[in-house]
Amino acid sequence: MKIHVLGSAAGGGFPQWNCNCRNCNDWREGATGAEARTQSSIAVSIDGENWLLVNASPDIRAQILATPALQPARAVRDSGIAAVLLMDSQIDHVTGLIMLRESSAPLSVYCTDRVREDLETGFPIFNILEHYSGVTPNRIDLQTRSFEPAELPGLRIHPVPLLSKAPPYSPHRADPQPGDNIGVLFEDIATGRTAFYAPGLGIIEDHLRPYMERADVLLVDGTCWREDEMAREVGGEKTAAEMGHRVQSGPGGMIEVLADFPDARRILIHINNTNPILNPDSDERRILDEAGLEVAYDGLGIEL
């Protein structure tokens, strides 16, 4: 199984277009070794030719241009993207579908009923795409333990619900339910090798641990270093937890959580522009290195 990190930043990317926090300012002035990052998305493949796009970032065009495997190669108009899987209906995970509107065939999109409802009502991308490429929705049933997408033979997908709210525009924003946000365990059927992907992992519920224990690679939420990071850096009012994310530092933080899975390759993704771990020379990055944790970057390739 091959995994390619297309984008490793949280919503807004890094540097964020309207942000002058320390990280963004240092990057613009060339005063840091931090790399620019686009908004989070990965691609997964078994054969290296047919790829599952996991979340469709607003930066998808640039991400495709940086990834030869996703570019046209078999026909005049074509793509290595065989299907799309959406883990939620957040703007930074679905807006890229509009960029794919010129597809010569309807986009095969896997999502839960809750996500589909959002994308047909509050943010009706599916309806818009009916005037262009069209969409073939494929239902992710959380009562079913796993499924195998027809477009990617050899890949088995195990979806698991995460505790999270729907986006602000969602008709059911105030009524969170399973299916608003999911994590996914990807399995190579031939080898049994697995990767767990959850960029929006805020609360580690008991039902998630068996999937995380089984994973050879953990790609999980790296949004914020500390709970009050937004207030400290940009004057924001919400804590990391209120935004649905688990911080890395402190008691119960992601560093402590991931210590329970020492045999897995552990990688943080969906990194906010305010997070000091973006700077490879920071004390926070040194702490991660000592804990055996990696920080995802655009273009990172993983083979299992």
Rank of each mutant, 00 (worst) to 15 (best):
L86M: 01
V247M: 07
G122L: 13
S164L: 08
I277W: 04
R265G: 06
T95Q: 03
G222H: 04
G183T: 09
L258N: 01
V115S: 04
K238A: 15
D298S: 08
L85F: 01
W27Q: 03
P167G: 02
A9H: 02
T67Y: 04
T112W: 01
A69Q: 06
Q63N: 06
P161D: 01
T274G: 01
Y197G: 09
E227D: 06
A259Q: 14
E187A: 10
T95G: 00
P106H: 10
N273S: 07
P171Q: 04
S249M: 10
G202Q: 03
D88H: 04
A31D: 10
L219R: 04
A31N: 12
E284M: 01
V160I: 15
G222F: 04
V160W: 04
P153I: 05
N272S: 12
L293S: 13
A105H: 09
E29C: 09
E49C: 10
V135N: 09
M212P: 12
D78K: 00
L278I: 12
I269F: 03
A190Q: 14
L86K: 05
A198S: 15
V76Q: 11
R61W: 10
A75L: 02
E117M: 13
H207A: 12
A82G: 07
L86F: 01
H270K: 07
I302V: 15
Q16Y: 11
V54L: 07
R285E: 01
L218A: 14
D92G: 00
S133Q: 05
V135F: 11
S89H: 02
L119Y: 05
Q63L: 04
P161M: 02
